[in-house]
Amino acid sequence: MLPTLRRILRGLPAYLWSGWGAACSLLFLLAAWEALSAHYGDLILPAPLATAQRLAELHGSGRLGAELLVTARRASAGLGLALAAGSLLGLCAGLSSTVALLARPLITLLLGTPPIAWLVLALLWFGMGDGTPVFTVFVACFPIVFAGALQGARTLDAGLRDMARACRLPWGMRLREVYGPHILSYLFPAAITALGSAWKVVVMAELLASERGVGAALAVSRAQLDTAATLAWVVAVLGCLLCVEYGLLEPLRRELERWRENTR
C-alpha cells in the first residue's frame, strides 16, 4: 500500500504538468466560443464571461449544487446498477459460448434502441420521480458494460490458464492475478464510456420527465429563453464530467494499466 501511495505521489507533478495540453485545447475552445458570441450576439450565444457570471449567480443562490447533486445521485445510481448487473451477467455469459452467442443479438438490440424510447416507457412505468431517469441511465449503460465484461471473459488466454494450472495457483490467486486484470482491462474502458453516456442520458431524462435536477433546470431556462443559464448548466455538467474523468478515472486507469507503458 505504502509503495503504491509513494509511486502515485511521485507521479503527481508529471500528471499535473501533462494537464497543460488539455488546458490549452480548452482555452482554444473558449476563444472560439468568444469569437462566435461576438459574431452572433448575446441572445444566440452569450459570451463565456456572461455564462460564468450566470454560473456564479446560480452557485450563489445554492441551486447549482442542489440540482447537480440530484443529477449526480440519479446518474450514479443508474450507472452503479448497470456496472453491478452488467459485469456480473457479462462474465457469466462469457463463460459459456452458447450464452455468449445468444446474448450478442440482444446486446446489439439494446445498444441500438434510442434512450428516448426507453424514456417514454419509463415515464409510463415509473412516473415523474427518480425511477425514470435512474432506469433510463441503467438501460443505456447496461449493454455497454455487459459487452465489455463478456468480451473480457471470452478472450481469457488459454495459455495463461494452463500456466496457472501447471503452477498450481489456488483459485483466489487465479482470479486476482490471472483472470481479474485481464477482465478489468476490458471492463474499465467500458465503464468510462458508460459514465459519459450516464451523464448525457440523465440530463435528457430529467429534461423531459422530472421537476428536479440539471435537466429540469435546463427545461426552465429554455422556457424563459435564458441562453446564458442554459450554457451555464451545460458548463456545470461538463465541468463535473471533466473532474470525474481527469481527477479520478484517468489516474485510476494509469495505476491499473501501468504494465501497458513502455518502460524500456
Binding site: G159, L160, D162, M163, A166, E177, V178, P181, W259
Partner: peptide, 15 residues
C-alpha cells in the same frame, strides 16, 4: 513438478 512452456506465458501485468 514444475513446467516450462514453449511460449513464456508470463503475466503481462506483473514485472
Amino acid at each position: 513438478p514444475a513446467m516450462m512452456f514453449q511460449q513464456p506465458r508470463l503475466l503481462p501485468w506483473q514485472n
